[in-house]
Write a protein that binds this DNA or RNA. Sequence first.
DNA 1: CATCATGTTATAAT
DNA 2: CATTATAACATGAT
Length: 265
Amino acid sequence: MPELAEVAFYAKAWHPAQGQTILRVHTGPKPRFFRHTPAAAFAPALTGRSFLDTRTHGKKLLFAFQNNLWLTGHLGMTGELLLAPPDHLPTAHDHLVLYTAHHALIFRDSRMFGAVLLDESPGPPPAWQALPPEILSPQFTAAHAAAALQRHPRSPLKAFLLDQTYFPGIGNWMADEVLFQLRLHPATLAASVNPSALRQALRTICQKSLQTIAVNWSDPPKNWLMTHRWKAGGLCPRCHTPLLRDTLRGRTACWCPTCQPQSPP
DNA sequence: CATCATGTTATAAT
DNA sequence: CATTATAACATGAT
């Protein structure tokens, strides 16, 4: 489910518990979810520390706790963060639940493509500091986009946009949205893409998504592909042509054959 | 029962 | 070696 804006939405879920002390920790029985940090490490590390704040980078989450403890999280395909009353009983997919005096902070994920891990360091963990520039950061320049495109010249743009090394936070629907707004077919080769136009489309889509979905899960503008791409028989919001779907690099791409024609060979 | 899903990564192929 | 393609992961919805 979660891409940039959905992750930003979930990141606020635990906010009411900011400043509160973790009194008790529940970890579920699935080893898969604790493949980075063993489940047994969470209760000793977190109990007694206060929850300070949350930040995001693309699809990644970082929670700061008192005394240099950091919890990194990824929501995978089905992860979600929830807040519940302090008597919450963990369900089968509540892999990590932190209890304060007033709340239960829940990390839920049915498919377990997501994960959590712990770090202890004076500042954010080294892996966090080494992350690439975010799309809305000043470092994400047209030159940066151009360099990225040149490194993967024969990659279909749709597949390339999913590379978190270059486009942190972009997922399947946002990549389709970028292609739609640029009027480019998903199979367009990266080398042929205008870096400035790509950067501008990425920034616009990230900004607007953060103003809508991330705030209250409201829909982005109706003239976006996003609100049409999942329904059967969906029509292009610009020209009302029936949308096409096909699998590209193992993911479903959705596009308008009129607005986004296949470029000539 | 078969297919599909808003993600990532190890491994294979070029 | 660098880039691109595929399969696998685990579960629920349709």
